[in-house]
């Protein structure tokens, strides 16, 4: 399984993390599942971080934003395929909080480490299994430039 993302959208989500530094950014990945069941990102939707009490180490997306994004995605024939956020001055690995607060099984959770205001690593993790047994697994993140696709980063 892999998450495929056009380079301009990949750059966009990384730049979002730089723009909100030292706070966490967050957003939604809209796209589609291709014939092989892999996810292809068609749009990156930037969201506000509603965790204004602790934005440097927490994020939360307003459910109303999710409702609107999901509705518009369906109208366009797309789906929510994942989410992204940044880890300011922290590794691009999922945390226990990330897992506890993750509920979209099958979706990608993309995390970018931002060090001193600069985006460093971007990794993707897929949430698997039912709520009581949920866990993250590393997911290949393929950055698409032009056909044929090539691999730019992969989970570490």
């Amino acid at each position: 399984m892999a998450l495929k993302i056009p380079v301009e959208l990949y750059d966009q989500l990384r730049q979002h993390g730089e723009a909100t530094y030292p706070h966490e950014c967050c957003g939604v990945l809209v796209g589609e599942f291709d014939e092989a069941g892999e996810k292809v990102v068609r749009a990156v939707v930037q969201c506000g971080n509603t965790r204004t009490d602790s934005p440097q180490n927490r994020y939360h997306i307003s459910p109303l934003e999710l409702v609107r994004i999901q509705r518009e995605a369906l109208l366009a024939g797309h789906d929510i395929v994942g989410f992204y956020h940044s880890h300011p001055d922290h590794p691009a690995r999922w945390s226990s909080t990330d897992l506890a607060e993750a509920h979209w099984t099958g979706s990608s959770y993309v995390i970018t480490s931002v060090e001193n205001g600069r985006a460093v690593l971007t990794n993707s993790f897929i949430l698997l299994d039912r709520e009581e047994a949920k866990h993250f697994e590393d997911e290949l993140l393929e950055v698409i430039e032009h056909q044929p696709m090539y691999c730019r980063t992969k989970p570490i």
């Binding site: 966490e24 997306i61 459910p63 109303l64 999901q70 956020h85 506890a100």
Partner: peptide, 30 residues
């Protein structure tokens, strides 16, 4: 566009053109 928790919860009436949307929450942090 309204959270049913702030309406009349389960008893909130619906009409023909309405849409009910289910969305799991999205949150986390380092």
């Amino acid at each position: 566009d309204e959270d049913i928790r702030y309406l009349n919860k389960d008893a909130t009436p619906v009409k023909e053109t309405d849409t009910v949307t289910i969305v799991p929450s999205v949150a986390g942090g380092r």
